[in-house]
Computed example of a mutant assay.
Amino acid sequence: MRFGLFNLMNQFGLSQRDVYQGTIDCVRLADELGFDTAWFAEHHFSNYSLCPSPLMMAAAVARETRRIRLGPAVIVAPLYNPIRLSEEIALLDQLSEGRVVLGLGSGYQRFEFEAFGADLAERQDRLLEIWAIVDQAIHQNRFKHSGRFYQIPDVPQAIELYNRRRMETYFVSWSPEIIARAVATDAVPFITVGWGDSKALAGMHDFVRQKYQEAGFSLAGRRFAAQRYVFVSDDRNELRKVAEGIRYAGRCAGHMRVGAQHLDGHIIADEPVAGEPSLETIIASVPIGDAETVAERLIAEIRANAITDLSCFMMPAGVAPKAVLRSMERFGSDVMPIVVKAIAEDTKRREVA
């Protein structure tokens, strides 16, 4: 079982300094607790995320950590020049001494694509080409590509991977061509359902399973990554604050998906979206609460969806970093051991059977 720490870096009632330093402190603690990976989001132009460059953020925390792997979740590939992207991934791998994992996605926020002058309708086709270019550049140290969107002459990519192994890749996009490339390169599908409950998570898992089938493959037996809000606290008022942060981020994402957000400078107005859950529903539906509740919910979801990689979103919007660090410490001492033991016992039972 692999545990990841996801960093959206939302600014909601916090200073920008709190967001950046708080993220660094949380990743440092995750490294100490034995988390496998620290993930960094990519978004632009608003307080939904103050991380426009996940590779730069990963480089910053590489010097603050020793073991934890670092990666973007995810690079919005159609917004990049593939040459510079490839070189910066390889550079980060050298700076982190081989700790980079790669997350690639096609993007979804019309607001961002329009500002970059990119065509949202082309996003999956561009992702497919960029993935091929990056894969060749970082593993073969060559650029050579002639495609619909990108033409690159045969030139060297100078920066080698730190230990010359194949870089592990996660992906978020579901066209048949992208899934075929994922299967060919052993890439890991990565899903999230935000404030959704266990039923929504199962529905998303089934969606990905169906997409694999439509592409001529099976999801069964493959690694599968899922992201969940996780927060450990016995304080009901604190959990309500956590739920408010989860709701705000969900509202932002919902509005930005269709370009309906209202901005005051870079701050997105906290306005409801149709069909959103109540705060009580959020508290009852996601893995937040006391340690026993969080462990039970996570174990049930891991079992139901064959999750091998759990990305924990542990710093909801507006929650002070010191509260997040307390929650993380309790997660490490009171939740992780229970989850690891339960999943290990499941594995033993399957092996015996």
Results as ranks from 00 to 15, higher is better:
G4D: 01
L5M: 12
F6Q: 02
S15A: 07
Q16M: 09
R17E: 14
R17C: 10
D18S: 14
Y20F: 12
Y20K: 01
Q21R: 15
V27I: 15
A30L: 05
E32L: 15
E32R: 15
T37I: 15
H43D: 00
F45P: 00
S53D: 15
M57E: 11
A58T: 05
A59R: 02
A59D: 07
E64D: 14
E64V: 08
T65N: 06
R66W: 05
G71H: 12
V76Q: 01
A77G: 10
P82C: 03
E87A: 09
S96L: 04
G107L: 01
A115H: 08
A121P: 01
E122S: 13
R123V: 00
D125W: 00
L128N: 12
Q136M: 04
A137P: 02
Q140M: 12
N141M: 08
R142L: 08
K144S: 10
S146G: 15
S146W: 11
D154G: 08
Y162F: 13
M167P: 03
M167F: 00
V172E: 00
I178H: 09
A184L: 08
A187S: 12
K199N: 11
L201Q: 15
M204L: 13
Q210T: 15
Q213H: 13
L219Y: 03
L219F: 04
R228E: 10
Y229C: 13
F231Y: 15
V232D: 04
D234R: 05
N237G: 04
N237D: 10
I246F: 00
A249C: 07
G250N: 07
R257Y: 11
D264K: 14
H266E: 14
H266D: 14
A269E: 13
E271Y: 02
E276Q: 14
P277D: 00
E280T: 04
A284N: 14
S285L: 07
S285V: 11
P287E: 11
E292H: 07
V294Q: 13
E301L: 05
M315F: 14
A320Y: 09
A323P: 06
A323L: 12
R326F: 00
F331I: 10
S333D: 08
E345V: 13
V352R: 10
